[in-house]
Design a protein around this nucleic acid. Structure first.
Lengths: 230, 230
DNA sequence: CAGTTTATTATGTGCAGACATAATATGATT
DNA sequence: AATCATATTATGTCTGCACATAATAAACTG
């Protein structure tokens, strides 16, 4: 057999699993053996198998070897949508409208969630994102000015809050949650649907170290689907 | 500086991006330069940066180099929940009940979606998954017996359809979609909610080559959230 | 000056060899 | 038999080097 690249090896491993040459639960040959079979270096086999393990297709353990995962569909990577690009990608025109912008002291529930002191001042924004002039997504955002310095001077009617934050505020990590909720009055009014309509919700809480930068709830209009492949 | 592992390098790169030593859009030093700075081989730098690029934090191009991504939160990996494990992981008891099981010829809309010939015979299952005896998720599944041989003889009241399929049917890939929908009458009755209640929906279409194996719609009861970190 | 060819450059992938590490198996000891 | 120490094994990571490849810059050409 001629030389094989790590991608060729991945394809062949996938094929053997799909055709049940290697069945779920089976231990596959060692890297050394596979390197011999494919006439390549162990490092090449290692990379091929390591990446397959990252997708959940294989499970690897030192000493005991590499097994075909019992449940082959365990991890999906999905692209966090950037609203403007998502809309423009469909050939539609993107526009957003800042419906409301105020500074308020954080409600208690939010203080707890955002890890803030009592009555911390926050910037509260309500924005409607539109595709071809029609409501697409309603954004309810809280920003911690202690972490997002300069936000008070930013012209948020021109640049969207998200883009301003990305450009100006360092972040370390974020928590994301997806769920379905019935539209509340704000969401219903903004999106032009009746209260209680099922909406796809994305909550995102963004951190810099132990400090929260921003919490945002995105409420998508009816018909919205988030899609991925495995 | 002493030797650094690829994970140390990743941590340091992350730190420099978070602290804005390297800002969004900046081009960072070349692999050769970083290898000198960190006193390690280029391959080590390559692995560190390649993996960061996979998460969307960096963007790499031959010749032009590696830049800090303008939008640092672009990809999230999320675990496809395995219902039984998800429930047991909360310390609750898992049970499922096969509500309905019949063989029917595929409706036209489904034939198109599942890439079937006209009036293809399908197995149609309705299952309720319960946590501590309370409704948790309602599953509506269509199985193509041409691709899932043996399904007609499987005892689906004992083993869940999903587990039977995983163990017995080879698959190549799948399409997954997430959305919010108001409960229909079946879902409402099974989950014990009123029609129209916002439900979190996962649709999954599973393929073996050009043939569809199974299409399933999972409707989660109110309060369900799918969570991930970035 | 526009268009094409050629060189340059940073990343992409590969190799052989080495040592590290976690998990397991084996053997020794009580 | 149960416990502990030791050897074995497969994967995990790293090195130093090489060549491939895509994207860009430079040189050339009409």
């Amino acid at each position: 057999m001629s030389r094989a690249s790590y991608q060729d090896i991945q394809a062949e491993v996938r094929r053997r699993i799909q055709t049940r040459v290697w069945k779920p639960g089976d231990t596959i040959p060692t890297e050394v053996d596979l390197a011999k079979e494919f006439n390549c270096a162990r490092a090449t086999i290692n990379r091929a198998l390591r990446e397959l393990a990252e997708t959940g297709l294989l499970e690897r353990r030192r000493k005991s070897g590499t097994r075909v995962s019992l449940n082959p569909m365990r991890k999906a990577t999905l692209d966090i949508p950037i609203t403007r690009l998502e809309i423009e990608g469909r050939g539609q025109t993107y526009r957003h409208k800042l419906l409301e912008s105020q500074q308020v002291s954080a409600p208690d529930a939010l203080s707890a969630e955002m890890n803030l002191g009592r009555s911390q001042m926050l910037v509260h924004l309500k924005t409607l994102h539109m595709a071809d002039g029609r409501p697409f997504m309603y954004e309810d955002r809280w920003i911690n000015p202690k972490a997002a310095r300069g936000i008070l001077r930013a012209k948020l009617a021109e640049v969207s809050a998200n883009e301003w934050l990305v450009q100006n505020v360092p972040i370390s990590h974020g928590d994301i949650a997806f769920q379905a909720l019935g539209a509340d009055t704000d969401q219903a009014a903004a999106l032009g649907v009746t209260v209680g309509t099922a909406l796809f919700i994305i909550d995102r809480l963004t951190w810099m170290g132990t400090q929260t930068v921003t919490k945002v709830r995105l409420a998508y209009g009816p018909g919205y689907r988030m899609v991925t492949q495995i």
